[in-house]
Computed example of a mutant assay.
Amino acid sequence: MTEPRAPFAGGCACGHVRYEMASEPMIVHGCHCRWCQRESGASFAVNALIEADRVKVTKGDVAEILTPSLSGIGQRFARCPKCQVTLWTNYLAMRGGLGEVVRFIRVGTLDDPDPFSPDVHIFTSTKQPWVILPPDVPAFEEYFVIKDVWSTESLARSAVLHEAVGTPAP
């Protein structure tokens, strides 16, 4: 079986919005925090972190909605204005000041989400007790040190973003 190649297409439930990711994400998080549980209505969220300029809306338009967040700064949800499915979010308080330039693609909105299983599980201190994490995937009770977990390629991509926004890379 061959690995899928970019671009990776996705969209909402009603078909009004279609998008493409131009490359693989930098990392995929399985986030078990209570905020993600509440916002997704599921036991955890699976988010593919990718540069905003590598995500292109190919059909329709998104409605951006600012929601409260634990940081107090807020989180911006990009949703289909018709069916209200969240396609991605921007965590405005993202570590390192990258909140505007990194999108957290909701993996379940990809046409083929299967290749994008979590590279890391975060905020496992609040995971549902019946969720069993795979033993070969790093898991952290809270967050992690980026340079200890991200691949060399992803760190290089992140460094480019940090340079663009004028913040130090991790």
Rank of each mutant, 00 (worst) to 15 (best):
D61T: 13
R103K: 13
E100I: 06
K59E: 08
R76F: 02
V85G: 06
F77Y: 13
E3F: 07
E24R: 11
K82G: 13
M21G: 00
E64F: 08
D119M: 05
S69F: 07
A78P: 00
Y19Q: 01
A9F: 09
Y91C: 08
F123R: 06
A42P: 11
H29P: 11
S151H: 12
A139V: 05
R54M: 01
G10C: 04
G30H: 01
R76T: 03
E24Q: 08
A52K: 01
S71I: 11
T109E: 01
C33R: 05
A52R: 06
E3H: 10
R95H: 15
G96D: 10
A164R: 14
G74R: 12
D148K: 11
Q84H: 15
P115G: 01
P68Y: 15
A6T: 08
I65D: 04
K56A: 15
Q128N: 13
L133T: 11
P25G: 04
F44A: 07
S151T: 14
E20K: 13
V165G: 03
D111G: 09
S154A: 14
A159W: 05
G99H: 13
I73P: 00
A78L: 02
F123G: 08
Y91F: 14
I122L: 06
I27S: 02
W88H: 04
S71G: 06
M26H: 03
W130G: 01
C12A: 02
E51M: 01
H162A: 07
G60F: 03
L110T: 06
P115D: 03
F140C: 06
E142W: 07
R103A: 12
T86V: 09
G60K: 01
V160W: 00
L133M: 10
E3K: 11
N90D: 04
R76C: 03
F140A: 04
R157N: 01
K82T: 14
A164Q: 13
M1G: 15
P115A: 02
M94T: 10
C80F: 05
A159L: 08
V62W: 02
A63M: 08
Q84Y: 12
K56V: 15
G30N: 03
I146Y: 09
R38S: 09
G60Q: 04
R106S: 06
C31V: 04
F8G: 06
C31Q: 04
S151L: 10
Y19R: 01
R106M: 03
V57H: 00
W35N: 12
A169H: 05
H121R: 00
V46K: 00
R38Y: 14
L70I: 10
I132Q: 15
H162W: 02
A6I: 05
P134W: 02
Y143E: 12
L110K: 04
F116T: 02
A169Y: 02
G30C: 05
L133G: 09
